[in-house]
């Protein structure tokens, strides 16, 4: 899993049926101390994440598992909202 910050939302009315009612969020991958790293992506939310929050997401086929038995076509799903990041000898990504 990897860290990211929620930076926005995508609305798509015409979409795969099993994406209906799912929140599509723009996420920016970040380093442990909160700096942007790499390109933003679109993730399906599974834990009620909101704009500005630091989250972690799961990639690949496993990204569709939180929605079972619904088969949701996702390869990037937010699976947790971060409260604290503890890194030996470095400041925190808050």
């Amino acid at each position: 899993m990897r860290l990211a910050r929620v930076i926005g939302r995508v609305v798509a009315t015409a979409k795969n049926d099993s994406l209906v009612g799912r929140k599509l969020l723009c996420i920016q991958p970040i380093t442990l101390d909160g700096r942007s790293m790499g390109k933003p992506m679109i993730a399906v939310d599974s834990v009620g994440a909101g704009a500005g929050e630091i989250v972690f997401w799961c990639r690949g086929r496993e990204a569709s598992y939180p929605f079972l038995p619904d088969v949701v076509p996702s390869d990037c799903t937010i699976v947790g909202i971060v409260d604290e990041v503890h890194v030996k000898g470095r400041d925190q990504a808050r």
Partner: peptide, 22 residues
């Protein structure tokens, strides 16, 4: 292993698991 992450709001399969930073 260089640290860990604390997250209370998360997918239920993560409950009880230690989320480490490697």
């Amino acid at each position: 292993v260089i640290g860990n992450v604390v997250a209370t709001q998360k997918n239920e399969r993560y409950h009880g698991a230690r989320i480490m930073i490697v």
